[in-house]
């Protein structure tokens, strides 16, 4: 199975490492045409303003198109901001693939960045989560399931084929969330095969 990682900027290497440990063929995606032949896509952490500016050749537009057709996508931190329908204090959003609103840097500046154990629904009740100047989910629409909360704030959610997290599972050695996403991709492949 091939899963892409948007490789414009950010923690690309870390996601590819985990994918390879899971026996998945991870591919760097910089251009729209590199999206074909993939079973899923990860949008990594990084700086969302830079990633969106630099996504040449309409990669993000193509990602939006795929998302609406049920293609599995996982966004961590900046990746979550790119996928959200709404960004607080900002008029436009980017891909708009999941009906949530997010607030940038909601966990504060870097001195407030932290690690904690999270209970992630359907994945683990002890997931080591690394939050770095993290965005939080401030509103969830119908059809969105909140998978994890930290001190009352939603920090992980799923709507159908789209999975988002405020934190960075790729900075730990714990592969359970990636495994969960690979499972989403497998399910989608099966569905496609039947159709």
């Amino acid at each position: 199975m091939r899963i892409g990682v948007l490789a414009v900027q950010g923690a690309v290497r870390e996601h590819l490492n985990i994918l390879s440990q899971l026996g998945i063929d991870g591919r760097r995606v910089k251009k729209a045409e590199q999206l074909s032949g993939l079973s899923g896509l990860i949008l990594p952490g990084g700086e969302s303003t830079a990633i969106s500016l630099l996504s040449r050749g309409c990669v993000l537009a193509k990602v939006g198109e795929l998302a609406s057709k049920g293609f599995p996508i996982f966004g961590t931190c900046a990746g979550m901001i790119l996928l959200a329908n709404e960004i607080e204090g900002q008029e436009d959003a980017y891909v708009r693939a999941i009906d949530i609103a997010v607030a940038r840097n909601a966990s504060g500046r870097q001195v407030d960045s932290f690690e904690t154990m999270l209970c992630v629904k359907g994945v683990a009740d002890d997931f080591p989560a690394v939050f770095i100047r993290a965005p939080y989910i401030t509103r969830v629409g119908n059809g969105v399931t909140v998978l994890a909360k930290h001190e009352g704030a939603a920090v992980m959610a799923r709507q159908g084929n789209v999975l988002v997290a405020s934190f960075h599972p790729e900075l730990t050695r714990d592969m359970r969330i990636h495994r969960y996403f690979v499972e989403m991709a497998r399910e989608h492949e099966k569905k496609e095969a039947i159709l």
Partner: peptide, 14 residues
């Protein structure tokens, strides 16, 4: 240290 070096990891390629 993971939080500190982690921020730098997020800046890669920038």
């Amino acid at each position: 240290y993971r939080v500190k070096s982690g921020l730098a990891e997020m800046l890669k390629g920038g």
